[in-house]
Nucleic acid binder design. Sequence first.
DNA 1: GTCTATATAATGATAGAC
DNA 2: GTCTATCATTATATAGAC
Lengths: 185, 185
Amino acid sequence: MPAPLLTRDEILARLLEVFRSRGYEGASMTLISKETGLGKASLYHHFPGGKDEMVAEVLKHVDGILEQFVIAPLTGAGAPEAKLNTMIKNIDQFYCGGEKGCVLDSLSIKAGSDASGIKLKEQMKAWIKAMESVSKESGCDAREARERAEEAMASIQGALVVARAIENKSVFQRALKRLPEQLLK
Amino acid sequence: MPAPLLTRDEILARLLEVFRSRGYEGASMTLISKETGLGKASLYHHFPGGKDEMVAEVLKHVDGILEQFVIAPLTGAGAPEAKLNTMIKNIDQFYCGGEKGCVLDSLSIKAGSDASGIKLKEQMKAWIKAMESVSKESGCDAREARERAEEAMASIQGALVVARAIENKSVFQRALKRLPEQLLK
DNA sequence: GTCTATATAATGATAGAC
DNA sequence: GTCTATCATTATATAGAC
């Protein structure tokens, strides 16, 4: 009985990288095997439901990242501007300064209204809601805070798309820099 | 010798829909056959190079759409605000008010630095450049116009991503509404 | 130019040894 | 828990009739 080569968290972290760079259909079992270093049989041992279960577990893993990098910083104590700056620093790191794409975008192509589609929707809404709350704290009324948060989410996602497409990370960096004025009154 | 069921332009229009909704890997020949109404053998008659050639031809077709809906309106005669409003009306129609995604995003997952990747990059740059020119016309200096245009591109792309993810087209509508103040001095 | 039928390759998934 | 070997299915692509 060989010892596990990777912890479950390490496996999920690598799966996340494969899915966000290749999408659902582009992430073949052969590629997943290569990128994780695990044989196909090992992967099916960990995820008997195959790719669908991998996606489901990766999205649960993303729940944790979202909580740690976005929700907790934004909903804790402190001044709105300071809390927002923490989130900005975190997502700059998570997206490698704009080099890497967002899994909520990559996986949304395959996702219809199935389980993963619902999950993706919930996660983006949770992110928006957290930004909405700091916007309210800064003095925006309910509707304005909501709209500013949705626009901020679009700025982040759009900057990632454009940065990848034209291979220029500065677009993402400027989007991050504009977030405070975009969200706070 | 049966008569052609579809014109080449109609075929390309349908292929564009398949690729922008499913991405490269998600668009299987079986699905493409279903969505275009053409048998696989017919598809290979029109595109001997298979899916790669389809993508290449679809992107050439997108050149025309881009020229007609974006480049020509923005670089022709007229006041910057009027020209921009024409583009906004055009892309609102092309993306069905935010219902449909952008093929430059959907296909960017498969595209590395191959031919299609280079083409996607060129097309998004051409779009940005056209918006940059109206920004300059409105009084922005070179650098500011460039940055505003990149941010406008990110606004459009991001709004499409968010609108699809949270199933709320109003995000895209508001992004369109903000484009004039975003681009023009 | 389109069709049916088929060849060939890659895919997701499993069995059984260790 | 991981491996090699293999299965069944689906994929891309082609041949040849009409």
